[in-house]
Write a protein that binds this DNA or RNA. Structure first.
Length: 1116
RNA sequence: GCGGAAGUGGCGUAAUUGGUAGCCGCACCAGACUUAGGAUCUGGCGCCGCGAGGCGUGGGGGUUCGAGUCCCUUCUUCCGCACCA
């Protein structure tokens, strides 16, 4: 049979799916290898040929690793929350879930027909509640954590609370908001719960704060810095403005240093690491305080006067504290909070005019305008702390409010911007280094010795910077400071199609919903637009409110008054509905014990008190934390805020007493501080009580009405039966993608985001392939979340992706036809071939690349492509119409999209896979050009033919291969190993061609060679290889796990080598010389050769260089 | 402006530690087989030159017996950042 790729590929794709050939086991004696692709956003356009490039490379790698005996995890899923589906929903009213579902179906069909070896049983979708339940859960962990700088890791917020209760705010070294309060332990305890929560929010790793955000009005949402490019949204290209809003943020800045350091430990492309370093933007410098001189005037704006009069200084950030003696003025940003207070009445008009002008300039104009010098003098002066000089304070928009302190010390001799400013406004310029050249521009040199610089005169840079910082610290006028350019990441989006934030509001304060309430499912809305009042789309959801009563927590839901079941039959029949619920709650509580509960349980379990203790046991409408039914003793643990619920507790105790239980209470802190003491107290109490078997309790039927508030336990936020507003913004697109690789490890786990065992086994991603466009988004956020989860011991690796490869972008290659323009300037229906356009007046038009081959227009198809082209006239060259070419982004509007479906239809998936690899180095960006695909197709047919005779019958010989045949085989065995190891897939494809060309020349159809060839080629062209593999008599489906052939160097050993003989470095001829000869003998042999003698022309060589097995060079 | 990557035939590219520059394809040319060819096979194919030979890895310079590869300098292209103090 001829090579029938269509049948073969269909057959094996079905086989792999039916037999789950690529389903990965979590338990294996093989070493693990995790090959991950960046999962796609399923867009409506489907895949074009650029998308699979990285997937093909990773698939080859994954298949290769399987052959090499690894247990390979190679999963795929969809990053299915996002803007396009939502924009489509806004336009059409179609629910984004439906659009997304349809797009995923298209993607899946397209992916399947390329023959990837994904383990689809582990598929994830970020928009599925099973998945985003855990995205929300991780959010909750972030909310419940703070960053302890002393431990250099995230820790539980409980630990912070404990510290506050014991020592107040002293001794806390946290990454937190700037304006945290100072308080003693007693002051903390005296605070209302509200105030405590407000303070804690300043420490949480995800927090709500009034922040300046990138607001995109057209999209109706805020955007993160990495989603804004040059003042426009990355998606859609809409203008973005700065706006102050209450927003969720992630305290990624806490990890700035670790994110920076971690880069040194991972095998990523250097440009990408550099981009992250840039984005993090660490600069080591100092904060310096400049006192305000003679601050005495009044001003109608008194907002900051208070702080100014008590603390009259401006703080600047500088990386060049050594240049402080060259400071000749200060510049503060126009938005700086002290501007109004510093402005003297004389200067008021100037300053206000300048601010008005600066405000009008958009972000873009301000950037474009970087070279124009502008500013205004405030009229105030500051004192240089090191020399007491009085210097002017200016405002200018080259100083950014958002970086450092929003103020700089201007050193015109060393900083070009300061230099230009000083020249423009005639401010002094003082040289401070002996070799500084400052006639025409600033000289930021660090060489030379300091002059005009007081106590650092004569020092070098290294000495000076240390001396200045020390002096500033001594004076109390400054300190060393590391600054980062990276800002905390805005985490909320005012959009519909994203993960709901698992938070509700009581007063102004956010509270987490309960963990067992997850997932908080995205509600239905009538429209996907903001409300009239400008609230996010989720505000449209009807009855979407948080009801604590509906929240199964430590206590079941109850109304205001409740007919307590003082019937004496609390266990089975109190209320069948409640009883079911209660059992569920208890189970949930047992799975998620608090720290204190867990600590105590370790002491109480297994009868360590001498009595059987149950935990989270349902009793009537309550759940007891711990109970001994034998003694009727209930042990309750209370959180710190529990004092609010005294009334409820009393009622609860009353009911429990009624049943014959004794209730004792401890606080969580008591347990955590001294568990043994609590244990002793419990034991003592148990011993003192009489036995009373309450397991079969049946008291007199004595019903009484008891007032019960809805909480009997630790329900956070309880206290009334009101409903609360949920957070209305959703999470950004990067939330789900910041941890998804862990879900693949254990994709169907309902109890955890992934089991401890799965994480311990798979650990991290060994190879990650994806585009560099995610450098400062996904790849940074993923590292951040990973480090956070490591801190909480949820995962084991500090870095998630050990090795990363960026596949290059596939650009479009547009073709053009040239329409003739007549004398009147009108377009005609005549088209001129590209080589002739200089002779005519033409205008280029995009033409569909799919009707052009090797830049020659298919005229027949062209005429059919549009009705108006049907009678078009074409001016040809050499009988052909040659199209023009340009490289552009691949897009529908440019008619340059090449769809993999068409190519698979025509050449098959194996050809497409190999051709995409053959295009060039994986990491290199290149335009798509279908021109060479025939060559790869021919290769596969040639390979197929090796196994068939002239009548196209399968025909293989069992003869012993020749030495030359073995040599071809072992060359390719080694070559492919080396190439795959360095991700050089293009070179291995050409080596396959060489091997098959050689074997064709040998007319080799020997099993001893071809069977191994099938294995080696199978990662690249799996379908054809599977087919040949069973034809060779092997069991179907076993090829994927066959053993990669072993390289044997013996087959490559040569007796002779054709030495290039060069004279003065120029190769003149070749000589076959035995490889057993040593350099001295080679030299003699070469010089004796007649051909060489001819070149020498009788001259005696000055020197002869012989490199054994490489070259002979004769120097004349 | 700063940082990074890269410049090799008509085109995509190859040359793993400095050791024969142009492998493998595409396109093109010639030929064979054919009713035909968008099939297959054979040969050619960096540039100049009839040839001998010479010149060739963006340009210039250097190190070396020998440089596409290392160093300096310069130009060009692409990518990222951009008034970051």
């Amino acid at each position: 049979m001829d090579y029938q790729f269509k049948d073969i590929e269909k057959k094996w794709q079905k086989f792999w799916a039916d037999h789950q050939t690529f389903k990965t086991e979590d338990k294996s004696t093989k070493p693990k290898y995790y090959v991950l692709d960046m999962f796609p956003y399923p867009s409506g356009a489907g895949l074009h040929v650029g998308h699979p490039l990285g997937y093909i490379a990773s698939d080859i790698f994954a298949r290769y690793k399987r052959l090499k005996g690894f247990n390979v995890l190679h999963p795929m899923g969809y990053d299915s929350f996002g803007l396009p589906a939502e924009q489509y929903a806004i336009q059409t009213g179609q629910h984004p879930a439906i659009t997304t579902e349809a797009n995923i179906a298209t993607y899946r069909r397209q992916l399947d027909q390329i023959g990837f070896s994904f383990d689809w049983s582990r598929e994830v979708r970020t928009s599925s509640p099973d998945f985003y339940k855990w995205t929300q859960w991780i959010f909750m962990q972030l909310f419940n954590s703070w960053y302890n700088k002393d431990a250099d890791k995230a820790e539980s917020i409980e630990k912070l609370v404990k510290h506050f209760e014991q020592s107040g705010s002293t001794g806390i070294n946290a990454v937190c908001d700037d304006e945290t309060a100072s308080f003693t332990a007693d002051e903390w305890k005296a605070m209302s719960n509200q105030d405590q929560q407000k303070e804690l929010l300043k420490y949480r790793l995800t927090y709500l704060r009034q922040s300046t955000v990138n607001w995109c009005a057209a999209l109706g949402t805020v955007l993160a810095n990495d989603e804004v490019k040059d003042g426009f949204s990355e998606r859609g290209g809409y203008p973005v403005e700065q706006k102050k809003m209450m927003q969720w943020s992630m305290r990624i800045t806490a990890y700035a240093d670790r994110l920076l350091k971690g880069l040194d430990s991972i095998d990523w492309p250097e440009p990408l690491k550099e981009m992250q370093r840039n984005w993090i933007g660490k600069s080591v410098g100092a904060l310096v305080r400049f006192q305000i001189s003679d601050f005495r005037f009044e001003n109608e704006d008194k907002t900051n006067l208070q702080s100014l009069t008590s603390n009259p200084y401006i703080e600047v950030f500088t990386t060049r504290a050594d240049t402080i003696f060259g400071t000749t003025f200060l510049v503060i940003a126009p938005e700086h909070e002290l501007v109004a207070s510093l402005t003297t009445p004389d200067q008021k008009a100037d300053i206000e005019a300048y601010i008005a002008m600066a405000k009008k300039k958009s972000e873009l104009e301000r950037m474009a305008d970087a070279k124009t010098v502008s500013g205004a003098f405030t009229g105030s002066y500051a004192i240089n702390p090191v020399n007491g000089e009085k210097i002017q304070i200016w405002i200018a928009d080259y100083v950014l409010a958002g970086y450092g302190t929003g103020a700089v010390m201007a050193v015109p001799s060393g900083d070009q911007r300061d230099y230009l400013f000083a020249k423009h406004y005639n401010l002094p310029i003082i040289p401070i280094i002996d070799i500084q050249k400052i006639d025409t521009e600033a000289d930021p040199t660090k060489e030379g010795r300091y002059i005009n610089s007081g106590f650092i005169n004569g020092l070098t840079y290294k000495e000076a910077i240390v001396a200045v910082v020390a002096k500033l610290e001594e004076l109390g006028a400054g300190k060393a400071k590391v600054n980062f350019r990276m800002r905390d990441a805005i985490f909320g989006r005012q959009r519909y199609w994203g993960e709901p934030v698992p938070v509700y509001f009581k007063g102004d304060l956010p509270y987490l919903i309960s963990e067992n309430e997850l997932p908080l499912v995205l509600p239905e809305v009538d429209k996907y637009l903001p409300t009239e009042s400008g609230e996010p789309p989720l505000a449209r959801a009807e009855n979407w409110k948080y009801k604590p009563t509906a929240a199964p927590s430590k206590s079941p839901p109850v109304g205001e008054t409740y007919q307590a079941h003082l019937t004496g039959s609390y266990r089975e029949t109190a209320d069948p509905i409640y009883y079911e619920q209660l059992k569920n709650f208890s189970a949930a509580n047992r799975n998620q014990p608090t720290e204190a509960e867990n600590t105590l349980w370790q002491l109480l379990r297994k009868d360590q008190t001498g009595y059987k203790i149950r935990r989270q046991h349902a009793i009537d409408i309550y759940i007891a934390d711990f109970v001994s039914l034998q003694k009727g003793l209930i042990i309750e643990l209370d959180g710190h805020h529990h004092k609010l619920n005294k009334e409820a507790d009393d009622a609860r105790t009353e009911v429990l007493n009624h049943f014959g239980f004794t209730v004792i209470r401890f606080t969580n802190d008591e347990v955590l501080q001294n568990p043994q003491r609590i244990f002793d107290q419990i034991k003592e109490k148990l011993n003192s009580l009489e036995n009373r078997d309450l397991t079969k309790f049946s008291d007199a039927t004595n019903t009484s009405e008891v007032k019960v508030s809805p909480t009997g336990g630790d329900l956070e936020g309880a206290g009334n039966a009101d409903t609360y507003e949920y957070e209305l913004s959703t999470m950004p697109g990067w939330a789900g993608s910041s941890w998804y690789w862990y879900r693949y490890m254990d994709a169907h786990n309902d109890e955890e985001f992934a089991s401890k065992e799965a994480i311990a086994y798979w650990k991290d991603v060994d190879l990650y392939i994806g585009g560099s466009e995610h450098a400062t988004g996904h790849l940074l956020y993923s590292r951040f979340w990973n480090k956070f989860m490591k801190d909480l011991s949820l995962v084991v690796a500090e870095e998630p992706f050990k090795k990363l490869i960026n596949q290059g972008m596939i650009q479009g290659r547009s073709n053009f036809v040239y329409r003739l323009i007549d004398e009147m300037g009108r377009g005609t229906n005549t088209f001129v071939s590209h080589g002739l356009i200089k002779q005519f007046k033409t205008s280029p038009l995009h033409v569909d690349v799919n009707i052009v081959e090797n830049d020659v227009l298919n005229i027949e198809k062209f005429k059919k492509s549009r009705p108006e082209y049907a009678d078009a006239e074409l001016i040809l060259e050499n009988g052909k119409y040659i199209c023009g070419v340009e490289i552009e982004k691949m897009s529908k509007s440019k008619f340059n999209v090449v769809n993999p479906d068409d190519l698979i239809e025509r050449y098959g998936a194996d050809t497409l896979r190999m051709y995409e690899m053959f295009l060039g180095p994986l990491e290199q960006s290149k335009p798509w050009n279908t021109n060479g695909i025939e060559g790869v197709f021919k290769f596969l047919r040639k390979f197929w033919r090796l196994f068939h005779n002239e009548a196209w019958e399968f025909s293989i010989s069992n003869d012993e291969p020749t030495k030359a045949e073995f040599k071809s085989l072992h060359k390719i065995i080694r070559k492919v190993e080396e190439d795959i190891d360095r991700f050089s897939f293009n070179t291995s494809v050409s080596s396959f061609m060489i091997a098959v060309n050689e074997l064709t020349d040998f007319k080799c159809n020997k099993r001893g060679i071809l069977q191994d060839m099938v294995i080696i080629l199978s990662p690249y062209a799996p379908h054809i290889c599977e087919e040949l593999w069973i034809q060779l008599g092997n069991e179907a489906g076993t090829l994927s796990y066959a053993a990669y052939p072993k390289f044997n160097a013996a087959y490559l050993i040569e007796d002779e080598f054709s030495y290039p003989i060069s004279i003065n470095g120029k190769t003149k001829m070749n000589l076959n010389i035995s490889l057993s000869l040593e350099p001295k003998d080679i030299e003699a042999h070469v010089l004796a050769d007649a051909g060489v003698q001819k070149y020498l022309g009788g001259a005696t060589p000055k020197k002869v260089i012989v490199v054994k097995g490489r070259i002979v060079n004769i120097v004349l």
